[in-house]
């Protein structure tokens, strides 16, 4: 006689939340540098791109395939959207709408956007990251990861558009503002941002390679930084960033 198995009070296995990392060029190139390294270190694979046929000024050819400047990567439940060009006013609305649409279709539970914030006197031994969430549900993540809340200040430019659109969407978004040099690529601050993100997503990230390449990244990111500042300068006339010499 075969005994019958009974399932008793089986607890629901918690689902690992789907997280999307958003890396776009901004102050100190924090978003680009940190998400770019996370994509590399976590061995994420390219799965798509966000295409804007009207404004795409450049394409990338890799292994005979054509890719746009805004690509989507994936590793398990972790996604990343990485842009190699600054998102200007002309394209920010369609960009964020595509991003929200992608997140909704793919069951993304949360978007994390590493970003930079100007620090007039940055202490390299005490670089701070502040969090700003579009939804109360993410405040516990900030608390668990000891991320102080961004309490007062002003956000202008495309980031403001992204934040306001996210706030009115169903996808919670956490923006991480790491103190940085606003005008130069700042891998030192990006390193802090990577640590914060890896702690939130609970993945170990080996930073050895990044640390070795900091000077290289500063040199390599010059043009992207200049393009980004030009975009920010156009949009933030009131703040008057300094003149950039050619």
């Amino acid at each position: 006689m075969i005994s019958k198995n009974n399932l008793k009070s089986l607890k629901k296995i918690p689902k690992e939340p789907s997280v999307l990392l958003l890396g776009i060029p901004g102050p100190g190139l924090i978003g680009t540098l940190s998400v770019s390294y996370l994509v590399h270190a976590l061995d994420m694979e390219i799965v798509g791109e966000i295409e804007n046929l009207d404004t795409t000024p450049v394409v990338f050819i890799d292994g005979g395939e054509i890719f746009g400047p805004i690509r989507i990567y994936r590793s398990g439940s972790l996604y990343a959207v990485l842009s190699d060009m600054p998102i200007d006013y002309e394209m920010v609305v369609s960009f964020v709408e595509s991003l929200i649409e992608f997140a909704q279709k793919n069951g993304i539970d949360m978007i994390i956007m590493p970003n930079g914030i100007q620090a007039t006197e940055k202490d390299p031994n005490n670089i701070k990251t502040f969090g700003l969430s579009t939804d109360e549900s993410l405040e516990s993540i900030m608390y668990e990861n000891e991320i102080p809340k961004f309490l007062t200040g002003m956000i202008a430019g495309p980031d403001a558009t992204i934040l306001s659109r996210m706030k009115n969407s169903s996808i919670p978004c956490l923006v991480l503002f790491t103190q940085c040099n606003f005008f130069f690529p700042d891998p030192e601050s990006a390193l802090n941002s990577i640590k914060t993100v890896s702690s939130i997503i609970k993945r170990d990230v080996d930073l050895t390679e990044f640390k070795k390449q900091m000077n290289y990244l500063r040199l390599q990111g010059r043009q992207l930084m200049e393009d980004t500042l030009n975009v920010l300068q156009q949009e933030k006339e009131a703040q008057k960033p300094p003149q950039i010499y050619k």
């Binding site: 680009t32 770019s36 390294y37 994509v39 590399h40 450049v58 990338f60 890799d62 400047p69 690509r71 990485l82 190699d84 060009m85 390679e209 990044f210 070795k212 390449q213 000077n215 290289y216 990244l217 040199l219 390599q220 990111g221 010059r222 043009q223 992207l224 200049e226 393009d227």
Partner: peptide, 22 residues
Amino acid sequence: MTTNFIPSFKKQAGDVIESHTK
């Protein structure tokens, strides 16, 4: 300076930095 990580970043940002490298 040499790198292992840079190729992946360069593949992404390389063409954008072209005008500066010019």
